[in-house]
Write a protein that binds this DNA or RNA. Structure first.
Length: 423
RNA sequence: GUGAGCGUAGCUCAGUUGGUUAGAGCACCAGGUUGUGGCCCUGGGGGUCGUGGGUUCAAAUCCCAUCGCUCACCCCA
């Protein structure tokens, strides 16, 4: 038997409803904030991610699905969406049409990691990017937007963490400071952290190893060495969050694994999804556009994991999807009337009435069971004596009542079904 | 890449110290008055016990290998 590739999942009809529910909520919410959808190709030139995300990141270093096409071009299945969106923004000069571009997306991403709870190799993210403004109000809006969506889904167990990484200049100054502090303690650090010392020293804060944490806890904090603008922007974000009633905590160790972040970064965690707690992560990336060849343009955004969110919703039973139903199930009492039933179905469907019937030549009892299983609101019996007298039987499945309707008057039938909805 | 746990019906699982034709619940199909659902009752179909090898008179059960799944580490959504 051929099975789905490791780390990929089928979304079966039995659980598609909650995806639709979420997608509808997303489109409505993004519209509320005036974001427009963008769709980019599933793969890109590898260089886009190498340059955009950063050569030293885990994503680029070991997680990408990279392959060569027949012309030997190196291609990569997108592991995240910010770089492609920025590429598209530059390529089509979206910024020339208006100074601020607000975009959202819902799409599959690919990363070759070992799967576990809340982690897949093909997974879906939704997110937003606002390109063209350095206003911290926009950073606050991102958090508000993401947090609002999670709240709308009924999620409770949420933590919003924020931090500021400052401008590149202050970050460089700070890195030197940190390097100086850690210099003589370097050989006490774990192997991973010693490697980070040279590649990306800030990520040492991410280490979960206790001995590392003991060393790093007395280190100077980036947040205490911010430049004036980063500092005041951070204050504005915090004020704005407080005003909109979003609970948050400042986490000076929140250093995200993508190199392009500047100033504000944030993460929304859930306690309901296993070890992978981050439902959503984002922040400001004022340098990325020029890194990818565009004009220097400030930008901010976030990405959220659909599977993780749905997992949290499932575990918290945060929302309930109503059962699916159809309006009418047509039952043929005489097996000779198959084509009559088919014709009636066409008529009903053309009038926007959802219906179905038995294609397996089963007994009336079997057809009734089927109607019941499909949550049909009505059953229409066709055949027998009524049919000979030009009538058919319409049965209301919630109260069991039946009424006769002339076979020739389909309008009366449609009227009945439409004006007599069962709540 | 590293570590741990688990593979028996479509699903959830039972299966004794190795011992007849491998079971249950749910789901599916048929029937329970000639043309009517849910509840209930009766019957039925469906399994290479993940795969390959080994031990044995005898393997779902013991041993080895292999594949797959799950969870965790790393990191991230």
């Amino acid at each position: 038997m051929i099975k789905a590739i490791t780390g990929t999942k089928d979304i079966l009809p039995s659980d598609i409803a909650k995806w639709h529910y979420l997608e509808k909520l997303l489109r409505e919410t993004f519209h509320l904030y005036n974001y427009k959808e963008i769709r980019t190709p599933i793969f890109e030139e590898t260089a886009l991610f190498a340059r955009g995300i950063g050569e030293e990141t885990d994503i680029v270093g070991k997680e990408m699905y990279t392959f060569k096409d027949r012309s030997e071009t190196s291609l990569t299945l997108k592991p995240e969406m910010t770089a492609p969106v920025v590429r598209s923004y530059i390529e089509h000069s979206l910024g020339a049409q208006q100074p601020l571009t607000k975009l959202y997306y819902i799409s599959s991403m690919f990363r070759q990691e070992r799967p576990q709870a809340g982690r897949l190799r093909q997974f879906n993210q939704f997110g937003a990017e606002a390109i063209g403004s350095k206003s911290p109000l926009l950073d606050a809006e991102m958090i508000q937007l993401a947090y609002g969506i999670l709240k709308s889904l009924g999620l409770k167990n949420l933590t919003v963490k924020i931090n500021s990484l400052g401008t590149p200049e202050t970050r460089e100054t700070y890195k030197k400071l940190l390097k100086k502090f850690l210099e003589d303690k370097k050989n006490k650090l774990s192997e991973d952290s010693r490697r980070r010392f040279d590649t990306n020293i800030l990520r040492i804060f991410d280490s979960k190893i206790e001995s590392d944490q003991n060393i790093i806890k007395d280190a100077p904090k980036l947040i205490e060495h911010l430049d004036e603008e980063s500092k005041s922007d951070f204050e504005i974000v915090k004020n704005q969050l407080s005003k909109t009633g979003i609970p948050f905590q400042v986490d000076p160790t929140l250093v995200r694994g993508l190199d392009y972040y500047t100033k504000l970064t944030f993460e929304i965690d859930s306690g309901s999804v296993g070890a992978q707690t981050a439902l959503c992560g984002g922040g400001r990336y004022d340098l990325l556009i020029e890194t990818l060849g565009g004009k220097p343009t400030p930008a901010t955004g976030f990405a959220a994991g659909v599977e993780r969110i749905l997992l949290a919703c499932e575990n918290e039973k945060s929302f309930i999807i109503p059962e699916q139903s159809i309006d009418v199930y047509l039952i043929r009492v005489d097996s000779a009337l198959e084509t009559v039933v088919a014709d009636f179905s066409s008529d009903l469907r053309s009038q926007n009435i959802s219906c179905d019937y038995d294609y397996l030549n089963r007994s009336v009892k079997a057809q009734m069971r089927e109607a019941n299983k499909m949550n049909a609101k009505y059953v229409l019996f066709i055949g027998g004596d009524e049919y000979k007298n030009g009538m058919m039987n319409l049965k209301n499945m919630s109260n069991g009542s039946e009424e006769k309707i002339p076979y020739s008057n389909i309008n009366q039938l449609i009227e009945r079904i439409k004006t007599n909805p069962i709540s």
